[in-house]
Every structure is written in structure tokens, then in C-alpha cells.
Amino acid sequence: MKLSIGAMAEPGSTRTNKTGSWRTFKPIINVEACIGCGTCSMFCPEGTICKVADKYAIDYDYCKGCGICAHECPVKAIEMVLEGE
């Protein structure tokens, strides 16, 4: 790796660090129940819930499994399940 002068870093480069491995519980969106309100996406500390068509989807590469999305979903459309189950 060539070190940059003054330790500058490239924009958004934490993307190389896949924090999905931190997860113990995994949020699963029930697409049927989801009303597309975007609350989960707004609150996710990782910014890893994106709009897909009129619904929302989680990028598990970065989801740390904090559970905020599930806790805040107004229609309880997100379930936290033990990773690997």
C-alpha cells in the first residue's frame, strides 16, 4: 500500500470493511407486511437499508444486527432471527 501524504483517505472507503460479520441477530423484512414507509432506512446507523421498487431491502454486508429497524418499524414487518438459523 502506498501511503498518502498526511494520511488522507478516499471518500466512502470504509465500504471495504464488511461489518455484517458483527451480527448475532439478523433482521428479516417481511415484504408482504412492509408498507414502504422508510422508517427503518432512516434510522439504520449503517445506512444499509435501501429502497427497492416501493419496498425496502437490507444489505447484509454491513448490517450489524442492532435491531433498531425491527424496533421502530410501525407495522412490525421486521423480525430479528438468530444468525445462521
Binding site: P11, G12, S13, T14, R15, T16, N17, K18, T19, W22, P45, E46, G47, T48, D59, D61, Y62, K64, G65, C66, G67, I68
Partner: peptide, 13 residues
């Protein structure tokens, strides 16, 4: 961007 080292559930993030 994601990939930052904040605790899971970090309010500052």
C-alpha cells in the same frame, strides 16, 4: 458510508 466502526445501534452514526 457503511463499514464504519460505530457500535451496533450508535446514535452518533
Amino acid at each position: 458510508a457503511p463499514g464504519h466502526r460505530g457500535c451496533a445501534g450508535c446514535g452518533a452514526a
